[in-house]
Write a protein that binds this DNA or RNA. Structure first.
Length: 278
DNA sequence: CGTAGACCCTGCGCGC
DNA sequence: TGCGCGCAGGGTCTAC
């Protein structure tokens, strides 16, 4: 589920409750995530205090004041939950942390829940989390100045792969996933099958703008959802975004009234309008 | 080198 | 109602 906007929304929702809280203990109920959870390494963080909470692409970075921290990735079905201590366990609550949270009587509990177990819980005992090797090959953040038209042209030079595949490549740009790439290309009016190396600077400009607009709107939407619903369940979860093309196969295009088409690219569904995306 | 495909895992919705 | 199937928004590894 989560792409950049969801992860960013979760990051914002965790910041307040977690910052300054102390990790007391951790319980690993299932080690089998994308990489096996290292229990001893997680336990070494007990007693430390949560500092800043960051995001890089789709990764969440829980920096600890004393150094090191937790690196979380939600995969396809992961969630981070903040609950009062002792809340009912779900089958897929794989890692549970007890914290001495400020507000809640008896502290708070953070849980990593992930039915499909494509997610990741990693820890670093010391040093800067953002230097973690997993983050080294990530491309620029979409909102970073480095994500420019010139950069896109450079990366696309001589590439024959479709523009959609290029934008799905995390080493090109961090945080984009299948949904928002389809949405952004629809907004830009660019056919997802277009060879990346054949895109004009003008079209790259439109694509870049569309990516920023689509992501910003989704993050806004997430903020709205947060304000409206959070704390009812204590969940820092997902939210409904109004999608203009994704999942609308055979329905009328909202711009030109053509019929939305679904194709498969590298095993993933792409939605686009043949009528107005060229 | 760049690229496509297989694979990891569970849950859901659909058609029969 | 039950069952099998295809599909799902993540990333990584391997082979061509």
């Amino acid at each position: 589920m989560p792409e950049l906007p969801e992860v960013e929304t979760i990051r914002r929702s965790l910041q307040g409750p977690l910052e300054g809280a102390r990790l007391l203990s951790v319980r690993v109920r299932d080690r089998r995530l994308r990489r096996p959870v290292r229990v001893a390494a997680l336990e070494r963080l007990n007693g430390r205090r949560v500092g800043d909470i960051g995001r890089r692409g789709k990764y969440l970075l829980l920096h600890l004041v004393e150094g090191g921290g937790l690196l979380l990735h939600l995969g396809m079905s992961g969630r981070v939950l903040l609950l009062s201590r002792g809340a009912a366990l779900d089958t897929h609550d794989h890692v549970c942390w007890q914290l001495d949270g400020a507000g809640a009587r008896g502290g708070i509990e953070m849980r990593f829940r992930d039915p499909r177990r494509f997610g990741l819980v990693l820890s670093r005992v010391s040093g800067d989390l953002s230097r973690h090797p997993l983050l080294a090959s990530l491309g620029p953040e979409p909102f970073d100045a480095a994500f420019s038209v010139d950069y896109l042209r450079e990366r696309a030079a001589h590439s024959r792969r479709p523009v959609k595949n290029m934008l799905m490549d995390a080493s090109v740009v961090a945080g984009l996933g299948n949904i928002y790439v389809s949405e952004a290309l629809w907004v830009a009016g660019v056919n997802p099958l277009t060879q990346a190396g054949r895109m004009s600077p003008t079209r790259w400009g439109r694509v870049r703008e569309a990516i920023l607009d689509v992501l910003a709107a989704a993050i806004d939407q997430g903020g709205t959802t947060l304000n409206d619903y959070r704390n009812a369940s204590g969940e820092a979860g997902y939210f409904q975004v109004y999608l203009q093309v994704y999942g609308r196969e055979a329905q009328a295009c909202l711009r030109c009234e053509g019929s939305i088409r679904r194709v498969t690219q590298s095993g993933r569904s792409t939605f686009y309008c043949p009528g107005c995306q060229h």
